[in-house]
Design a protein around this nucleic acid. Structure first.
Lengths: 219, 219
DNA sequence: TTTATTATTTAGATTTGTCTAAATAATATT
DNA sequence: AATATTATTTAGACAAATCTAAATAATAAA
């Protein structure tokens, strides 16, 4: 099955929004891909034709088994390139997403597997996300919640779900990265903010919005 | 100036066919790009509009200063990726051209320069072709001729101009690679073949057609 | 349960890059 | 120089991926 870049991007976004097995709506997908709902409908028809998604009009989209397989291949390539960029070319955490977005579309299994080997077959990428293996198997990520819903007080940052340059740069500025230890001091409902103390720094306040994208596990 | 992949491929092929400053014909370019002359004419109009080429109808194509600059950037990326694939991912000589053809279109100067650094700023690629530096400067390649026109008897292979998988695999099978030493035993005009002896092997016969693509310098 | 709102799809247009077939220009041959 | 051949361009079409505007379906509100 030979997918175009546009098709791959749709598959990847459906995979991302599905999170388990939820149905993905036309609007959500259009927003994620920075495109228009009408365009998503067009593409949905094509991907259904290719049996990569389940789709009935007005009923939303889910990946088929083949679609999931394709998505995992793309995700694998993306995360391996991110590793390469950070580990070998010394890019920083927040710079690599856009570049990996392009490199991921070079569809060569041999290249992907050689790259993985070269990097020492890593199992998580620089953002803490697990890397599917050559067969598309994904190791279960360790138990984690988003920072806004954490109940334990002492936590470690394990991943960042939104990889926009803006957020990553913001976190960088605040001294928050993978493995950073922090404590929740207070959660202010009335203005949706959270006061935290990053290890070795004075306390700071962040919005719930930001906290939603920071995944943590109990220390 | 943001170029599409199609535009980049045209620029690159014009650069390749120009060899110095020769005018490139529509037909030659169509053949090189495995497309049709009419398509080349269409693209020529667009590239002229963007001031990347000099073009008057029926008069052929040459690169403008800007076009040459763009071409050298693409060639730089292509050759650096070839180095990476061979040196780091242990691909063989003849496998890397197609992959580099895709990787070269990731247009990030920062990535290109980091990659170059990571590789130790190489100045020639695995096929023996020089790599333009970050400013597009190309070190003059050592004096070389194609094998079919060589006058010295003892020679060293310095480059291969046609990088089709077929030819490279053929040469590999014959034990010919960069740096291989060989002697010309005889040049048969009547059937356009050349008998050569590769160092450490028994003499073999190759066609002039193949010899044209093997660049050599006197030992 | 009507009505209003929101989500989704359809219809038709646009851009990019390509093609074929026909027309025209340049070059080679007699 | 006239004619044949080859090279190039034009005209018109097509597929992919997108868009806008209008129509329709699903859902929420009154």
């Amino acid at each position: 099955m030979n997918l175009s870049i546009a098709e791959e991007n749709h598959i990847k976004s459906i995979y991302k929004l599905q999170e388990g097995d939820a149905v993905v709506t036309t609007n959500a997908l259009a927003y994620e891909l920075d495109t228009k709902p009408a365009s998503v409908t067009d593409m949905a028809k094509k991907l259904k034709e290719k049996k990569l998604i389940e789709y009935e009009k007005y009923k939303g989209i889910t990946l088929s088994a083949d679609g999931r397989k394709a998505a995992l291949q793309i995700v694998r390539r993306h995360r391996l390139w991110e590793c390469f960029l950070v580990d070998k070319l010394l890019f920083s955490w927040e710079e690599v997403h856009e570049l990996a977005e392009e490199l991921e579309h070079v569809r060569s299994e041999k290249l992907t597997n050689r790259l993985s080997e070269f990097l020492g077959n890593p199992v998580i990428d620089p953002h803490g996300d697990p890397i599917p293996d050559a067969n598309g198997k994904l190791v279960k990520p360790r138990p984690q919640t988003s920072l806004d819903q954490a109940n334990a007080k002492r936590l470690v940052v394990t991943a960042v779900t939104d990889q926009s340059t803006a957020l990553l740069a913001f976190l960088n500025a605040k001294g928050i990265k993978l493995g950073t230890q922090l404590e929740i001091i207070a959660h202010y409902e009335y203005d949706n903010s959270i006061e935290i103390k990053v290890k070795g720094q004075s306390p700071i306040t962040i919005s719930e919005q930001v906290a939603k994208n920071i995944m943590v596990r109990p220390l």
